[in-house]
Simulated scan of single mutants.
Amino acid sequence: MPNQGNGQVWLTSKVMGREHGTEATRKAVDDSAAVAEKYGLKWDLFLLHDPTAGREKRLQAWKVLIEKRDAGVLHSIGVSNFGVEHLEQIREAGLEVPEVNQIELHPFCQQKRIVDYCEKEGIVVEAYCPILRGQRFDDATLQKLAAKHKVTVPQILIRWSLQKGFVPLPKSDTPGRIQANADLFDFELDTSDMKELDALDEGKKGAISWNPVDCE
């Protein structure tokens, strides 16, 4: 299977919050790396899954990811569900900022403060739940734009994410839908389309998943 971020497959894993702290994170990474190595692979991206472990253990875990990346065990490193304060703590500790922050992101939950911070700091924003887990597809704006462009609602949502400069992570188990989710380059949302989608933002209330970006 191709890896090393060659544009075909990008292998990603995470360290859960309960595994943060120095020794727990080292064990989690080493165990995961050993599994990948059995198949001749190496993780392209390794993330801290969430910020729930608290400041001290988060920073310890982040130091371990830097250590493992520098040792060649991991290719790239990042975080998931981190808010601005969590990212600032990393900077204040004198550590390099993550390469990636993976957060819930779609027109109903746009996380603008986090996105603005990541863009300023050169952190890639990965958007999970970009197609709303199949929810809210009956929204009038989504339906109108899908009809206008003769595409599906998921295609509208993923196209919005791409035009925002995010890396969307749509999930589907259906081959036909997986293919449709990739067929995005024969249409483009115009300025008015993007404004209508931007206007759907409901802040934190628009989240459809666990969204711990404000935890301490």
Results as ranks from 00 to 15, higher is better:
Gln110Ala: 15
Ala140Cys: 11
Glu37Arg: 11
His86Gly: 07
Lys205Asp: 15
Asp214Ile: 03
Cys118Trp: 13
Phe187Ser: 01
Gly5Asp: 13
His20Asp: 15
Glu196Lys: 15
Lys14Pro: 11
Glu92Gly: 14
Gly17Lys: 09
Glu121Val: 08
Leu145Lys: 07
Leu157Tyr: 09
Val29Met: 07
Val115Gly: 03
Ala61Ile: 08
His106Ile: 01
Arg69Lys: 09
Ala207Asn: 14
Val84Arg: 01
Ala71Ser: 12
Ala53Val: 01
His149Asp: 03
Leu65Ala: 01
Lys205Phe: 14
His106Lys: 00
Arg26Asp: 13
Thr22Lys: 08
Ala93Thr: 07
Arg113Asp: 11
Ile114Arg: 05
Leu145Thr: 06
Ala61Glu: 05
Glu196Met: 14
Ala33Asp: 00
Asp44Gly: 10
Leu169Gln: 10
Arg91Gly: 14
Phe166Leu: 12
Val124Ile: 06
Cys215Ile: 05
Pro51Phe: 12
Gln110Thr: 13
His149Trp: 08
Cys109Asn: 03
Ala28Pro: 01
Glu88Gln: 15
Gly94Met: 13
Thr22Leu: 09
Met16Gln: 15
Lys68Gly: 07
Arg91Tyr: 14
Ile208Phe: 11
Lys68Ile: 05
Arg55Ile: 11
Glu121Phe: 14
Ala140Arg: 13
Ala93Tyr: 10
Gln155Ala: 00
Tyr128His: 02
Lys112Arg: 11
Ala61Pro: 00
Thr141Ala: 09
Phe137Gln: 00
Leu157Val: 10
Gln8Asn: 15
Val9Ala: 15
Leu87His: 03
Gly72Leu: 01
Cys129Phe: 05
Lys42Trp: 05
Ser161Met: 14
Glu96Cys: 10
Ser80Arg: 01
Pro2Gly: 14
Ala61His: 04
Val79Ser: 03
Thr25Gln: 04
Lys164Arg: 15
Ala36Gly: 04
Arg26Pro: 14
His49Leu: 09
Pro170Gly: 10
Asp44Asn: 07
Gln155Ile: 02
Asp30Gln: 03
Arg69Pro: 07
Asp198His: 10
Ala33Ser: 06
Asp198Tyr: 07
Thr174Met: 09
Leu47Phe: 08
Val79Gln: 01
Arg69Met: 06
Arg26Met: 12
Cys129Val: 06
Pro51Gln: 10
Met16Tyr: 12
Val84Ser: 06
Leu65Phe: 03
Gly40Trp: 13
Arg159Gly: 01
Glu196Arg: 15
Leu59Ile: 15
Asp30Asn: 02
Pro2Arg: 14
Pro98Val: 07
Gly122Arg: 05
Glu119Val: 13
Glu85Leu: 06
Val73Ser: 02
Ala53Leu: 02
Asn181Glu: 07
Ala93Phe: 12
Asp139Tyr: 04
Leu145Arg: 05
Leu145Ile: 08
Val64Arg: 02
Gln110Ile: 12
Val115Leu: 03
Val79Gly: 01
Ala146Arg: 02
Ile208Arg: 10
Val213Lys: 08
Pro98Lys: 09
Glu96Met: 10
Leu184Ile: 08
Val9Asn: 13
His86Trp: 08
Leu197Thr: 10
Asp30His: 00
Ala146Lys: 00
His20Phe: 13
Ala147Leu: 12
Gln143Leu: 02
Leu74Tyr: 02
Glu188Arg: 12
His86Thr: 02
Gly17Ile: 06
Ser172Lys: 11
Gln155Lys: 02
Lys68Glu: 07
Arg133Ile: 02
